[in-house]
Design a protein around this nucleic acid. Structure first.
Lengths: 332, 332
DNA sequence: CTCATTTGGGTTATCGTTTACCCTATAGTT
DNA sequence: AACTATAGGGTAAACGATAACCCAAATGAG
């Protein structure tokens, strides 16, 4: 079927090992003449390296396996994969992803991945959460992305939720806002951590948070849960203490806040500033006015993950928090 | 390093081939006793098949390569990959994706993919477009997803844009709407085809389209291009012939239409119905009222692509148009 | 009881590549 | 001129799994 080294060897009148050396072994000693001739014939025949064969010799394939937990619906998944992919390709690796559907045990998914003898394996969560890796398989996973591994045996990469919240609060304060409300995402780790950062930043400035309320019914954040946002905004506006800034748990919440404020006849940012988390570009940049929001470091997590995976000497496992990135638009 | 068949064979006191037969060759004749013993030892030792070794023998690896053209920013990419992945896994295959960045020739990307000796290769475009595959590589690609291959040497799977437009128009007509405007996406294939379907459906009903206008400056559709939507809506409302329905090129355009109608004090759907294409769930379901929209058949394209790739006898190449799917919410 | 068939399993070659080791010229050194 | 490096390249053995072939023992039919 496909051309192999021995086809080239025969045609060039040299041995297989010479061909191998000419094409792949950069430092193999041989005359430039031979090397060029072999390369020319390989090119002519359309030779393509058989990585499976090399893999059986080396014991691994130039692949990086990514186990993604649950559905890959989120657009963030692509960002993580993109970060991984970019770094992987420059190292001559390809990324293959397998879904960890809720039915299966993590062990069986890892076995599935290990069949390919990948160079490295990463585990990626689709939203920031805690994950408990069974001891037996912890050794097969090189890095955890967007989740905190409980046992501490594996390096975990997560967004710095607290820091991100502090940063956006400081930005609102610098813009002169003082009565800041937070419509948070309840029941998820990111929400809990952001609330901590939110309160800490305000406290540091000697200001009390106006209010912290959940975007949907407490303890269940899901896109399908009925939204409480409109009600919250109306309630906030009905009080004497009208907020001069509303921080939102994500861009979709901000979208609803925009609508509620528009109904109330208030202008953004003149009457009320709005800021949020996520930076779903397609949404945030299309709102009127375009939304100022904290971008999650998904791409950076992917890139750093690959660096860690492909690094020679593994550093001791630890939790690394990656900074958010402020995307300034016009809503503050 | 990893356990191999010979480790098991030694431990079980049988030959390697017997182990191979016991674990993988379902029909290999041997006593149930032997088979069970071998399986038990394999389990105990934690044996994991080495697919690279099998691959060198068979000539291919149980991998399906997906070449994705350009950036994988779109959330649709995940849908396509999900469709592929689901079908692939039930066939024991994994999907690996490589980005076709604009700098590279398609040939070099295909070579990169072929190094892994994948069972099949698909090419996926991130938006509906025409793609010209060089004759030399057309043979290596089994199916084109979300794009039309010019030469006709490869089966192409695309959304049925015309049919989708016809369907949503018929739905609007059935809801009693007669003055229907279309804010289309200019400069892209999907827009052109949808406009055809839009006009055809109205013509079939003996009605004239109110107007067809571009969402952004003509001939350049991009998320970053300045939007013309607000202006169009205002202009439409200023005429004597106020529309009773606005069809939008995508959900983000619809979002802007919502805002413009709200500013004008009009209610959806009572005063004006709004419908669109895409079904970006997170956006469409969060709008108020939730948006009725035509969902693109991305998942279906992924699934069908895998079926075609893994089918034994290839059917003659042709262009297959997959139907959109109406998602009824509350905006009509 | 003999011969044919089936059962259970071993031998060995093979896939394409890499690598440890070996051989032979040629060039350079003394 | 003899001797030693070294360049240039060949041989052959891996890597792990599979498959074509073979062989011995057990089973069945006549």
């Amino acid at each position: 079927m496909a051309i192999s080294l021995s086809d080239i060897a025969e045609r060039a009148g040299v041995s297989v090992k010479t061909v191998s050396g000419a094409l792949h072994g950069g430092s193999a000693r041989m005359s430039d003449d031979t090397r060029q001739k072999v390369k020319a014939i390989a090119e002519e025949l359309g030779y393509v390296t058989n990585l499976a064969a090399r893999g059986v010799r080396q014991g691994w394939l130039p692949l990086v396996g990514v186990i993604s937990d649950g559905l890959i619906t989120s657009p963030f998944a692509t960002e993580i994969v993109r970060g991984l992919d970019g770094a992987a390709r420059s190292a001559g690796m390809a990324v293959f992803a397998v879904n960890h559907s809720s039915g299966q045990s993590i062990g069986s998914v890892i076995d599935e991945v290990q069949q390919f003898r990948p160079r490295a394996v990463a585990y990626a969560a689709m939203y920031h959460k805690d994950v408990d890796l069974p001891p037996a398989v912890a050794g097969s996973v090189g890095v955890m992305i967007n989740c905190r591994e409980a046992s501490g045996r594996v390096t975990s990469l997560v967004p710095d939720e607290e820091g991100g919240a502090r940063e956006i609060v400081r930005y609102l304060l610098a813009a002169g806002r003082r009565r800041i409300a937070f419509i948070n995402l309840p029941g998820i780790l990111a929400g809990t951590l952001r609330e901590k950062g939110f309160r800490a930043a305000l406290e540091g400035a000697g200001i009390n948070p106006l209010v912290v309320v959940p975007a949907v019914r407490r303890s269940v954040y899901s896109d399908r849960a009925p939204s409480l946002v409109a009600g919250h905004v109306e309630a906030l506006l009905a009080t004497g203490q009208r907020p001069d800034a509303i921080l939102c748990g994500n861009d979709r919440v901000a979208m609803e806040v925009y609508a509620a404020l528009a109904r109330a006849g208030l202008r953004i940012p003149d009457d009320v500033a709005v800021a949020s988390f996520d930076n779903q570009v397609e949404l945030a940049s299309r709102l009127d006015p375009p939304l100022t929001t904290m971008a999650l470091p998904h791409r950076a997590m992917g890139r750093l993950a690959m660096e860690i995976l492909l690094a020679g000497e593994p550093e001791p496992p630890r939790l690394r928090k990656l900074p958010f990135h402020l995307v300034e638009r016009a809503s503050v």
